[in-house]
Amino acid sequence: MARFKKAGGRTVPGINTGSMSDIIFMFLFFFMVITTIRSSSLLVKIAPPKASEVQKLEKKSLVSFIYIGKPIKASLGTESRIQLNDSYATVGSIQAFVVAERQSRNEFDRKVLTTSLKVDAETKMGIVTDVKQELRKAGAYKINYSTHKRDAFTTR
């Protein structure tokens, strides 16, 4: 039966890795599409409260953010501060911020601009109320209290 015996030692053929890069690129594009790059680095600590009746914000490009919380840098104290874009701000500069945000959108989007308030759960309502008053004056009526999702209270 010598005829069935293969001549020489068998070698495993190399695996073709040509399509590997295609697969990885597919992954890459998938992640690029579903994620957003953080636009501004946070200067305040934000742990949003949890709520059950949440709605998703539809269009990211039509949302401007206002952050309120305690400064991350301990040297700045524990008083709640407002962050607009990349720096600390006062209540008085919110109207200018809203105007600037409006200017940067095209005319059709201006009416549907939403302001998302990202506020730390431990913040007192005083500063939040001040911000809301400024938003009213600036005409930014659509707001969204940013929260995490939780289950509703169980009814007894």
Binding site: M32, R38, Y141, T147
Partner: peptide, 13 residues
């Protein structure tokens, strides 16, 4: 990048 979807309670002032 972050995958956090923005969600919250929507209100009209």
């Amino acid at each position: 990048s972050s995958i956090d979807t923005d969600q919250g309670i929507t209100r009209k002032l």
